[in-house]
Structures are given as structure tokens and as C-alpha cells.
Amino acid sequence: MTVAVARPQIEAGTVVTIARKELRDSVRNKWFWLYAIAFAGLAGVLTTLALPSARVAGYGAFGRSASSLVALVQLIVPLMGLTLGAQALAGQQERGTIRFLMSHPISRSEAFIGMYLGLAAALSAAIAAGFGSAGVITVMRGGAADAGSFARIAILSWILAAAMLGVGMLVSAFTSRSGVASGSALFVWLGLVFLGDLGVMGTALATDLPVGALFFSAVANPVEAFRLATLTSFEGSLDVLGPAGTYAVDSFGSALDALLISVLILWVIVPVTIAWYRFTRGKDL
């Protein structure tokens, strides 16, 4: 039997095998557990703290816990996705795992897709555990929330994680040392979570930025797109966000949701595609 290493060919079986290997490696990774437990724990604590006073005539029953949860997701999920992704290619390259992997009849595309899917599965487990425990605690403490919006926030968090994982792998594909990759990923995290917003805020304050420009420069950031998409689900509208929110509602109306989710999906597709291109066209391993 000839083992033709047909490069562009992608076999589902191989991809799944690599994905499962990557998932197993992640689950054995202490960092993954640290993140998962921190996320689930914080989600539980936040929900608990937000609940006690939170019921007057059906108002505000979940809003506060939800906005705490969303802020937590904004902080932790990008950190998880970016660092796991950054470690993926550079770290394995440094340890020689990829060279070992490529000695098997596996195409680089298969390896890349497998790794991405495996890591995404690991992240999904962490997020599902976090939201699951937050939800159970809410119910146990006599709270209630609309199951639909709760599920929606969980799904949006998952999409955000998939996007951040891709960005992490993009960082990884352009560096060969895992230390550099991790450092760069942290910097990207800082940029997306803090510096991006602070920059738009500062620009708006200094230059009287029109609300439309403010809206678009904020929404280009996947972390912001995620936040706004969750707000539309549990606040019902972006009116609460002042003039820029009103602008968004007036300009896009019911298409707003689609716009925000498209931004998130673009952030899933584009970085991963560039990372894949770079990795498969790479020279040495």
C-alpha cells in the first residue's frame, strides 16, 4: 500500500483523531483546569452575590447577574482562547510534537484543523461547565431567568471563545517560540479587553466622535460585539447604552443582531484562515 502524502487532502477520520488527541492534551493541561475552575467558580460566586436582593415584582431578576456574567466572560474567555491558541502551534513546534505528528501520514491541513477542533472542544467544556454551574446555583437560590436568553449568552460566549482561539493560533503561527507567542497573546488580550475600549473612549472624548463612528469602532472589536449581542438578548434593546445605542437601534433595527453575530463569525473565520494559510505554507517545523 502506497502512502501517498497528498497534501491538500483532508480526511475526516484523521482530523477527528488529532482533535481528540489535542482535546486529551488540553484536559491534561493544568492551565486548562485552572481556567475552567476559575471561570465556573467565579460565575457561581457572581451569580450568588448578584441574586439575593434581585427580585421585586419580576423586575431585575436576572439582569444584574447576567451583566456580571457577561463582564466575567469578557475578561476570562478571551484569555482562555488566546493563551490556549497561542500555545498550540508554537508550543508544540518548540517541543517537537508537530514534527513527530507530521512523520505520520498526515497533511498539515489535517493537523491544523484537528488541533483547532480539539482545542475548541476543550474550551466548550470549560464554558459549558461555567454556565451550567452558574445556572444551577441561580435556580438553587430561588432565582429564575429566561432559559432562552441564558442559553443565548452561553452560545455567544462559545462563539467568542472560538474566535479568540483562532486569534491565538494566528499569533502562534507567526511565532516559533512559545514564550513569545504567550506574551503576544496576552498583549492582544489587553488590547481587545481594555485598550481598544479605552482608546475609543478617549478618542470620543477628545474629538467629539460622531456616535456612528463610535459605534462602528467599538463593534469591530469582537469582545464588544459579544457584549452588545448579549445585551440585546437580556435587556431587549441597546437603548440603555445612550446615544450610540439609540443610533444602532435606529440604523439597524432588527438587523442589529445579525450584524453583531456576523462580526463575531468573521472574527472566527478570518484569523483561523490566515493562521491555516501560514501554517500549511510554513517552511520548517
Binding site: 419580576g58 467544556a125 459549558a128 445556572g135 435556580v139 429564575a144 432559559a147 432562552g148 441564558f150 452561553a154
Partner: peptide, 20 residues
């Protein structure tokens, strides 16, 4: 204001934990 049932939330949460 309508009060929201908690059974749906419990179901979603347990499903998420099971998935994890």
C-alpha cells in the same frame, strides 16, 4: 410583570453540565 419559571433555566444548565 410576569414571573419567569425556573425549570427552563435548570434544564439548560443541566444540559450544559452534561455536555461539559
Amino acid at each position: 410583570a410576569t414571573t419567569i419559571e425556573s425549570t427552563g433555566l435548570l434544564g439548560v444548565s443541566l444540559a450544559l453540565l452534561a455536555a461539559a
